[in-house]
């Protein structure tokens, strides 16, 4: 079933892609092929591959239960939040929280996770910023 959905999704994506392709505005300077032809070829390949997958699906993959899916969704949310606030509160603070969360969810004891988060954040800061001179996000406190 999953593969059938994947195949149909690929066909739908191909249709969307080709439709957006037709909307590419022609330019005053152009080569014989133009900017549309290559996307059309790719769209066609994607659609054919999608049909093939939908017609002959593989074995059903083992999908995780709702709890595990929620776990992944939460991790994604934390990462998005991390990227969002990175510049506002600085690298060390945001990284500590994000790393601590991930470490906790991967099975660390909460206290150990907090320590791990701080160690990871400070460690990366020292190695990459202080030693290697990479530019990291600087928050209101400068780190």
């Amino acid at each position: 079933m999953s593969d059938r959905i994947l195949g149909i999704a690929a066909v739908a994506l191909a249709a969307l892609y080709i439709w957006r392709g037709t909307l590419i505005e022609p330019s005053f300077m152009s080569d014989p092929l133009g900017p549309k032809a290559f996307p059309f070829i790719i769209g066609a390949v994607l659609a054919i591959a999608g049909i093939a997958v939908a017609v002959r699906p593989d074995e059903e993959p083992v999908w995780p239960g709702a709890a595990r899916l929620l776990e992944i969704a939460m991790a994604v949310a934390v990462m998005v939040a991390y990227a969002w606030v990175l510049r506002d509160i600085g690298f060390v603070a945001s990284t500590s929280v994000a790393a601590a969360y991930l470490s906790w969810r991967l099975g660390s004891h909460p206290v150990a996770a907090i320590i791990a988060g701080i160690v990871i954040a400070v460690g990366i800061f020292v190695v990459f910023k202080l030693i290697l001179g990479l530019s990291l996000a600087t928050g209101p406190w400068g780190f």
Binding site: M79, Y82, A83, L86, F91, T95, A98, A99, A100, L102, S103, L106, G107, S108, A113, A116, G117, I120, A121, G123, I124, F128, L134, L136
Partner: peptide, 13 residues
């Protein structure tokens, strides 16, 4: 449980 958070954070960095 300590390695993967570090990998994720280094990816972001």
């Amino acid at each position: 449980r300590y390695l993967m958070p570090a990998v994720a954070m280094i990816s972001f960095v």
